[in-house]
Design a protein around this nucleic acid. Sequence first.
DNA 1: AATAAAGTTAAACAAGTGTTTGATTGGTAT
DNA 2: ATACCAATCAAACACTTGTTTAACTTTATT
Lengths: 210, 210
Amino acid sequence: MMNFNDKQLQIIETAEKLFASKGFDGTSVRDIADAAAINVAMISYYFGSKEKLMEAIFEVKIGKVQMRVEELLKDNSMTPIEKVNILVDEHIERVMKSQQFYRIMICEQASNKSAAIMGKVKMLKIKNAELIAELIKEGQKKGDFKKKVDVVLMLNTMVGTVWQTIITKDHYQEFTNNQSLSEEEYEKLLKKKLMIHIKALFKTILTNDE
Amino acid sequence: MMNFNDKQLQIIETAEKLFASKGFDGTSVRDIADAAAINVAMISYYFGSKEKLMEAIFEVKIGKVQMRVEELLKDNSMTPIEKVNILVDEHIERVMKSQQFYRIMICEQASNKSAAIMGKVKMLKIKNAELIAELIKEGQKKGDFKKKVDVVLMLNTMVGTVWQTIITKDHYQEFTNNQSLSEEEYEKLLKKKLMIHIKALFKTILTNDE
DNA sequence: AATAAAGTTAAACAAGTGTTTGATTGGTAT
DNA sequence: ATACCAATCAAACACTTGTTTAACTTTATT
């Protein structure tokens, strides 16, 4: 894991926003340099290349998520059920807060150009799936969860639903008669709805035996 | 709705594949021309620009989906429950079959650069949501479905789960101990799992009253 | 067969790309 | 003060981008 200095972090932050709104290819190194008020050469100087800058962005973001999830699952003052619920809430909170970044991530995953980035994402996903699978097992032993649970499909439903809701939020604001709300209020409402919706789905997935 | 001749359709088909695997910005008009064995100028000649070519791709694909959904929902030899199940199955079948195209669509949506394309996608989504909302109402009248159903969230769960499963299918093949399967077999298995999973979720969303 | 239109081409175009260079600055340690 | 090294800069580099041009072949119409 690399350590970045202030200047690098400033560039990373600026680039993250630009990549998110205009895409990786759609953003030139000069755009980044202008927005960050630095010279173009500094990007190559600090990161080696535009591609490596992107990797640095992912490294920072993914590292944070990884740490938080591990911390939560280690905590043994909570039951598996509680942990799953918090996992859902925090995932939604996180994605809603850094929508920009997740837009890049989606694009990168969808077009899987950079092997380095895909590798990082894959590692994160696998690691998380393993941790959560263990959590589920714990809950099964306690008798809280049913015996057969497909962890991957469950996580895909969470991640997928949240993503799809964010991506299409503008489409449906009209449809669901929420035009009167400010963007902030509407996002708050969406967040709340999502949390209830996904936790309800998880309850079915985890407990409804038949 | 435009009508395209054979040459145009050939270019559309080639471009679709390239855009899907390398992204819109990642694919040059020369790449397309080479792959389609035509001269670069033909793209401008037939479509006006690279951007308009992309729009043409979306027009063709979206038109097909729109028609099929409308046809299915009009059919009155089936109950609402049956229609919902078919809707799920056909969605999964469709996305699995044209994974390439859906990768572009996801990227386009995530980075919303082209207003023209976003407009087309939005129209499709709204139209479909309206049609399915009507279908749900029908089911509610018959007493098959519960009273409060959030159609948008329900659709987001379907679309999102399928998408996420496809995007990350490589990550998890190892994790779920399916390395021995060929890619074709693994996709078949995924498709089957997805259909069961989502229909189960829909059953909860549509009927589980509490 | 003559004329017009459509299709196709290689080459040129202007603009933008990521990266490197080599000079210059500013601060730190000798 | 000197030497040193990292930071910063404008400029240049080599290359790719999407699009247009103008010449040509092919096809269809009269």
